Simulated scan of single mutants.
Amino acid sequence: MQVITTTQALAAFCKDAATYDFVTVDTEFLRETTYWPKLCLVQAATPDRAVIIDPLADGLVLDPLADLLADDHVTKVFHAARQDIEIFVKLFGLVPAPLFDTQIAASVCGHGDSISYDNLVRAIVGEQIDKSSRFTDWSSRPLSEKQLTYALADVTHLRNIYVNLRNEIAKARRQSWVEDEMAVLENVGTYVVQPEDAWKRIKAKVNRPRDLAALQALAAWREQKAQTNDQPRSRVLKDDAVAELAIQRPLTPAAFEKLRAVPRGYGRSSSAAEIVDVLKSVEAMDKSALPKVAEKPRGPSPKGAIGDLLRVLLKAIADSNGVASRIIASSDDIDAIVLDDHADVPALKGWRRKLFGEKALAIKHGRLALAATRKGVVEVPVDLE
Score class of each variant (00 low, 15 high):
residue 7 T to C: 05
residue 7 T to K: 05
residue 9 A to V: 06
residue 12 A to P: 04
residue 15 K to R: 13
residue 16 D to E: 15
residue 16 D to M: 13
residue 18 A to H: 06
residue 21 D to W: 03
residue 22 F to N: 00
residue 25 V to G: 08
residue 27 T to A: 04
residue 36 W to G: 02
residue 38 K to Y: 09
residue 39 L to H: 11
residue 41 L to Q: 04
residue 44 A to V: 04
residue 46 T to L: 03
residue 47 P to W: 10
residue 48 D to G: 00
residue 54 D to S: 08
residue 57 A to Y: 03
residue 58 D to M: 04
residue 59 G to S: 10
residue 59 G to T: 03
residue 66 A to M: 07
residue 68 L to G: 00
residue 69 L to D: 00
residue 71 D to Y: 06
residue 72 D to T: 09
residue 74 V to L: 00
residue 81 A to E: 00
residue 83 Q to D: 11
residue 84 D to T: 06
residue 87 I to H: 00
residue 89 V to P: 07
residue 89 V to M: 05
residue 93 G to R: 03
residue 93 G to D: 05
residue 94 L to M: 14
residue 99 L to N: 03
residue 100 F to V: 05
residue 106 A to N: 06
residue 113 D to Q: 14
residue 121 V to P: 09
residue 125 V to C: 08
residue 126 G to T: 03
residue 126 G to C: 05
residue 126 G to H: 02
residue 133 S to C: 15
residue 136 T to H: 09
residue 145 E to K: 10
residue 145 E to W: 03
residue 151 A to F: 09
residue 153 A to Y: 03
residue 153 A to R: 09
residue 159 R to T: 10
residue 159 R to K: 11
residue 162 Y to V: 00
residue 167 N to I: 05
residue 169 I to L: 03
residue 169 I to N: 05
residue 171 K to Q: 12
residue 172 A to F: 02
residue 181 E to P: 01
residue 186 E to F: 10
residue 190 T to D: 08
residue 201 R to L: 10
residue 202 I to G: 10
residue 202 I to P: 13
residue 203 K to M: 12
residue 210 R to G: 00
residue 210 R to C: 00
residue 211 D to I: 05
residue 212 L to N: 05
residue 212 L to K: 06
residue 213 A to Y: 13
residue 213 A to K: 12
residue 218 L to K: 01
residue 218 L to G: 01
residue 222 R to F: 09
residue 227 Q to T: 07
residue 231 Q to V: 04
residue 234 S to H: 13
residue 236 V to P: 07
residue 237 L to N: 10
residue 243 A to R: 08
residue 244 E to A: 04
residue 244 E to V: 02
residue 246 A to F: 13
residue 248 Q to M: 14
residue 258 K to T: 11
residue 262 V to W: 03
residue 263 P to L: 13
residue 264 R to D: 12
residue 270 S to M: 14
residue 271 S to E: 13
residue 278 V to Y: 02
residue 279 L to N: 02
residue 280 K to P: 11
residue 291 P to Y: 07
residue 293 V to K: 08
residue 294 A to R: 10
residue 294 A to D: 09
residue 294 A to S: 12
residue 295 E to H: 09
residue 299 G to I: 12
residue 303 K to R: 13
residue 305 A to Q: 07
residue 306 I to G: 09
residue 309 L to P: 02
residue 310 L to D: 02
residue 316 A to D: 09
residue 321 N to C: 10
residue 322 G to D: 01
residue 322 G to H: 02
residue 327 I to H: 08
residue 335 D to T: 07
residue 338 V to D: 08
residue 340 D to Q: 08
residue 348 L to M: 12
residue 349 K to C: 14
residue 349 K to E: 15
residue 351 W to P: 11
residue 355 L to P: 15
residue 358 E to S: 15
residue 362 A to C: 14
residue 365 H to S: 09
residue 366 G to D: 03
residue 367 R to M: 15
residue 367 R to Y: 15
residue 369 A to P: 14
residue 371 A to Q: 15
residue 374 R to G: 15
residue 375 K to L: 13
residue 377 V to E: 09
residue 378 V to T: 08
residue 385 E to F: 04
